[in-house]
Simulated scan of single mutants.
Amino acid sequence: MAITLLVTDRDLTVVGDPIACWETVDATVRLNAAGSAQFTTPAHPWIREQIDAAHRVVLIRDRRVFIAGPIEEYQIEQSDDGENSGDGKLTVTWTDDLALVLRRQAYPNPALTPEEQTTDYWEWDGNRELGLHALVDANAGPGARPERQVPHLVLDSPTGITATGKVSSGWELLGEPMNRLAGDDVGFRTTQDMAAKRILFQTFPLVDKSDKVRFGFGLGNLRYLSFKREAPRATTAIVGGQGEGADRYVIERTNAVAEAMWGRREVLVSRNGSDPVEELETAGDEQLRDDGETYQLQTSAWDTPDQRYPEHYDIGTRVSVALGPNLQVSERVQLVHLQAWATAGELASAMVGTQEESNDPLWLRRVRALEREVSRLGRTTRPASG
């Protein structure tokens, strides 16, 4: 274990000796979201002198910056005896520098003050990675208005991601359009360049290593698994019905696979019966997707000597998780949690999947493919797309 804690001023200059006498460290980095961290240490006077509202903490693990950013809170506890006697105990909480970016408002026109705005939205249609750089630069980076620039923030070079997308934003926290634009293709983060005293905003591709990085109870690197599956609200959509006589045209759309598994569940989708058949079919298919069965996958996986963050996987990497003897699915690493104790070593764990329910994660293709193999029913109804 090699963990170093440094305190810097707002100009990223180290203000004192490394805090080598820390007792506990707890830090979390997240995919396309700000991380957070906390450490506890004896409240020696030379450490108290380093802690200030304008200062920052840098956590270095194995010679790499794990998380760095401004102090959000600190607490000193003292008592006349017991564990907090003497100098007492100091607890310091800080956040990722990315929070400084995500907390900016997305201006419709970042070049103007709020009073000068003449448009409702900032829009991008093109390369996702370049769009993220443009959005951050205009609202928080060197290209932003002087009063809005995050001190010492610079944009690292794009990595060459070719995915394209669209986004429009205006008067919302910057993290919201950033996540919409990133989609399932681009990750973003900040890190500190210690030598150059810079905060780097970086984008990176969300890669698939599900054939190389695996977690499972049988592999000894999975400590928690939650897999929830919920029945669809509808398997057949009856579309149309508005109008009279010849205009009262009705069609039926059925998700045959879901209906074979869960039974028939009907929903009425009101549309003008005289609409083109293709539009009625599309409306039915969209309703079946919205009302489809939902899945939720959440795991907590251990780091092991031969499978560690960030050597073997990164935030956003797609990895494999064994759900059972014959079923392996893949999902993204959403966060990495580092815990360390001065007397007991460290523990790093990754959360794969999210607490959010979804009706169409990519790994469901495997689940559905298995179901189709089991339930070949030769039905004549046309399944909904998706």
Rank of each mutant, 00 (worst) to 15 (best):
K89D: 02
D87G: 00
V57M: 07
C21R: 12
E49T: 09
A34M: 03
P70Y: 04
R61K: 13
A53M: 08
W22T: 07
V29R: 15
E23G: 01
D80N: 10
E73T: 08
T40M: 01
D26Y: 03
E49L: 05
E77Q: 14
T24A: 08
Q75F: 01
A53P: 00
D80R: 10
R63A: 11
D80H: 06
A43V: 05
I47G: 02
S85I: 00
A43F: 05
A43C: 06
I71E: 05
A34N: 08
T28A: 07
D87I: 00
A37Y: 08
I67C: 05
R63Y: 02
N32P: 03
I76E: 09
L90N: 10
A27K: 06
T40Y: 00
S85N: 06
I19L: 11
I71G: 05
V57N: 04
E72L: 12
S36Q: 13
N84C: 05
V58Y: 00
H44M: 03
I19S: 07
A68G: 12
A27V: 13
I67E: 04
R64T: 12
A68I: 05
N84F: 14
F66W: 14
S79N: 12
G69L: 06
D26Q: 14
C21I: 11
Q78R: 15
K89P: 00
S79P: 00
N32D: 13
E77T: 14
R64D: 14
W22D: 09
S79T: 12
D52Q: 15
Q78C: 03
W22P: 05
G82K: 07
H44F: 10
R64M: 13
I47H: 08
R61D: 14
W22R: 08
D80Q: 09
E72Q: 14
Q78S: 11
V25I: 15
E83K: 11
A37Q: 07
A54C: 00
I51T: 04
W46S: 12
A54I: 04
A37R: 08
H44D: 09
V29Q: 11
L31P: 06
L90G: 10
T41E: 04
D26L: 07
V57R: 05
D80L: 10
V65C: 07
I67K: 02
F39Q: 08
Y74E: 07
I47Y: 02
A37K: 10
D80W: 01
S85D: 09
